[in-house]
Design a protein around this nucleic acid. Structure first.
Lengths: 124, 124
DNA sequence: CCATTTAGCTTGTAATACAAGGTAGCTTTT
DNA sequence: AAAAGCTACCTTGTATTACAAGCTAAATGG
């Protein structure tokens, strides 16, 4: 077998609180990252820091592919910036297209929160 | 080829508002369905009706597997009930375990909303 | 030169929603 | 009674995303 290196077998997580959090987070990260980038040029570590402060967990293996998707969709752009202490960094900015998309995401999120509110607060 | 029957090729949807809504909804349906079932015995069409009223779109192909997952996790149970106009229905109820799980989901959701609020409302 | 840190990236897996079908029971129409 | 229609439940294949667990390369410090 080619990939015989010990990759940990992930436990099945269906219907478990930790998995539910992961599932609920799907799509939300994209929204949050766009908001963070919109506030000003940032690179990956800045983003992770901001998200962590807000208790929104994200790991690098999630963030980098997400940034690539945003870039491919022309919602963000980046430029290389030399660092004073380490390898160069990709600093991201939002594009006009990204700002417009973010507007629709705001509406999507608000609508979703409202729907959920309506369903979960309804009485017998 | 065995499955040569014309199954519509789904358009790639990455970074598109409609897909984002789908992604954001992930995990949320489970939460909403548990809430609906907690309020009293219901069958699939009742659930779809309630969700649709709240503008939370869901199709049967999503709902039935979800109900099976909830059942397998012992979070809900069901009994067959004869209908006056059509085939029998599965009426679902929440279990004790389901109620407890729902409590943790409430916390997960609240926390997620708060994190998102913090990130998306922050100023420069 | 070598170890460490930092930055960016890749691969394989798992979970969920959806599209687009299908089967079977019951009712209504012909 | 047969055909047509509706209702309820279910299945299969695909797409998307997040995660675990790795990797490479640049810069720094000893």
């Amino acid at each position: 077998m080619l990939h015989s290196r010990s990759r940990q077998i992930r436990k099945k997580l269906t219907m478990n609180a930790s998995n539910t959090q992961i599932q609920m987070r799907k799509g939300l990260l994209e929204f949050c990252i766009l908001h963070i980038i919109k506030r000003g040029e940032v690179y990956a570590s800045d983003m992770i820091e901001e998200l962590t402060e807000a208790k929104m967990i994200v790991v690098e293996g999630t963030l980098y592919p997400l940034l690539q998707r945003l870039k491919n969709a022309s919602l963000v752009s980046y430029r290389w910036v030399e660092s004073e202490s380490g390898p160069p960094r990709k600093y991201y900015s939002i594009t006009e297209e990204g700002k417009q998309f973010l507007e629709t995401l705001n509406a999507t999120w608000d609508s979703l929160v409202q729907s959920t509110q309506q369903i979960t607060s309804k009485q017998k």
